[in-house]
Simulated assay, not measured.
Amino acid sequence: MTPESAPSLRQLLAFYLDAGVDCALNDEPVNRLLDDEIVAPAEPQPREAPAARAEIKRAPAPVQRPGAAPPSPEAAIASARAAAATAPTLEALRALMEQFDGCALRSTATRLVFADGNPQARLMLVGEAPGRDEDIEGLPFVGRSGKLLDLMLAAIGLDRSKVYIANVIPWRPPGNRTPTPQEIQICLPFIQRQIELVDPDIVLTLGNPATQTLLQTRDGIMKSRGRWTDYNTGTRTIRAIATFHPAYLLRSPAYKRMTWMDLRAVAQALEALPGKAAN
């Protein structure tokens, strides 16, 4: 490669962003190819005084201790189900998820992205997982796709104060990679409980992963979008419909027309369905 053909700094940064490298692990760069740059093992720390140990014992401790083997996927799924079932309110569910360590995504994400909007809303929107902007701010749909979602809602006379927004996965996967089936199954009880506690009149799933997970279908989004189905919380049956994810619409704007049809169907259903107080 000649100096003239070498990529510019801007091109390198764009490549790193596309590859998912969007945050720094250290304040200073480290050359991993040099032996003398390899970090030496940390020296053993002196044993703590009894008073210090007592203070740590009183502080909220993580469920999984550092160095301990992570729970098996089956155990993590069972733990998530049992924990979610005990949450009587959204606030309790959020606090419980903050402490849950059965999903490895919690250790790589910046923070929990729980939800945004009105917990009393009649319409609940569910996406797949947080992205970089959501991981930074701790709110779902705040990046480019979030701005488009706001415009989509405004087109049918709604905004975030009138809807409730969440994701199937509450922690950002590293580099915005696709969540694994195991990660989805571990997090599924939490979003199911969240839907049950919000108790909306309509659930709108955004994109293929959220639609297939929540509506238990193997159809792709092209086939499942715009089609009404029932979502059973265990205590109530809720009307559900799927549409394209805003991030997909940014890449494929030709499908905005279909999304507008889906949103119009949602608006008409909200007008026709009785409110939650009447159910």
Rank of each mutant, 00 (worst) to 15 (best):
246 P>M: 04
95 A>E: 14
70 P>H: 01
166 A>M: 11
217 T>G: 08
43 E>N: 05
194 Q>W: 11
22 D>I: 01
266 V>L: 12
190 F>A: 08
217 T>Y: 10
14 A>T: 12
145 S>H: 06
169 I>A: 11
17 L>W: 06
142 V>G: 09
135 D>M: 10
251 R>W: 00
101 D>R: 00
232 N>S: 14
72 S>C: 01
115 A>N: 09
223 K>S: 13
274 P>Q: 03
207 G>W: 07
228 W>G: 03
45 Q>N: 04
277 A>W: 07
117 G>R: 08
216 Q>T: 14
98 E>Q: 11
156 I>K: 06
225 R>K: 10
33 L>K: 00
117 G>L: 07
124 M>Q: 07
221 I>F: 09
68 A>H: 04
229 T>C: 13
165 I>N: 12
268 Q>P: 03
43 E>L: 14
119 P>T: 12
233 T>Q: 01
79 S>H: 08
113 V>A: 12
135 D>L: 08
57 K>R: 11
48 E>H: 08
19 A>T: 05
229 T>F: 02
167 N>I: 08
35 D>A: 14
170 P>W: 06
206 L>Y: 13
108 T>Q: 11
131 G>L: 14
22 D>W: 08
63 V>G: 10
49 A>K: 01
248 Y>N: 10
82 A>W: 06
128 E>P: 04
238 I>Q: 02
245 H>W: 03
65 R>W: 00
127 G>R: 09
106 R>C: 13
126 V>M: 12
230 D>K: 03
121 A>R: 02
197 L>I: 08
186 I>K: 07
202 I>E: 01
172 R>S: 13
53 R>Y: 03
182 Q>N: 11
240 A>C: 09
87 A>V: 10
118 N>R: 00
244 F>T: 02
136 I>N: 05
160 R>H: 12
144 R>L: 06
221 I>G: 00
121 A>C: 04
31 N>E: 13
62 P>A: 00
69 A>V: 14
3 P>S: 07
11 Q>L: 06
68 A>P: 14
91 E>M: 03
39 V>D: 03
231 Y>N: 05
8 S>G: 13
166 A>Y: 05
232 N>C: 12
113 V>F: 12
29 P>L: 02
97 M>A: 04
212 Q>T: 15
123 L>Y: 09
225 R>P: 00
144 R>N: 09
